[in-house]
Amino acid sequence: MGNQRCCLGRTVEAFVGEYASGKTEVSINRALALNRQNRRVVLLDLDTEEPVYTVRTVRPLLEQRGLEVVSLESHMVFGLGEAGVPVTEEMVTVLRLPGDVVIDVGYGVHGAAALNLIDGLEDEPSLTVYCVINAKRPMTSTPERVARYLEELDPCHKIVNNTNLGRETTREVILDGVEIVTQASRISGKPVAAVSVDARIADDLGLDRMDLGAPLWRLELFMTGKPKL
């Protein structure tokens, strides 16, 4: 029993990256963006390390917005953070669902290898793995560090430049990030797919009128506030 060979031309995207680089925000927004195009989208929470700041914690809100979310449900999980975040059969077989699939992959020393847990992913023709980079995070704050990090992540096809300082993000922060990530892109040979920015900040700074070297993805933020299980 393989994947349903439906949906030729369906999109399967996975978002990997350093801890707290913005993978979850970006993957939620990508899923919503695809959904807005009247496409059926499944958002998979594949974070098996972190008990907070994951898709699971905002699942009810996202379902209200029309997304199909595959994740654990917080109240169903016993001993969160103490007994790990288990994977479920539903998560492993996500590719059998029709429609686009967006995967938020948790961080970890194995990089993108968590994708091995998804049944049939190696046969998926349209899989694109995006590495989310925030150049304001110390471990990915120079072109060399970013390029080295990208090398460790295997596979990784494209970069999403999510450089930000939270609410303190300024035009300078964004432009610095563009410079750093563009250089890293040259060193590593991975293209920059997009520059993602908090939508309110993007509007305030008039970023859509600027040349950032890549398409602008405006983000609605969901992972704000204090951590919750």
């Binding site: 390390e49 103490e82 007994a83």
Partner: peptide, 22 residues
Amino acid sequence: YAMTGGQMAPTTLSGQKTSTTP
């Protein structure tokens, strides 16, 4: 140590990558 994020255990194999033996 599966549950707390994959740290090294006494039984971790030589050369095996874990979150405290990156």
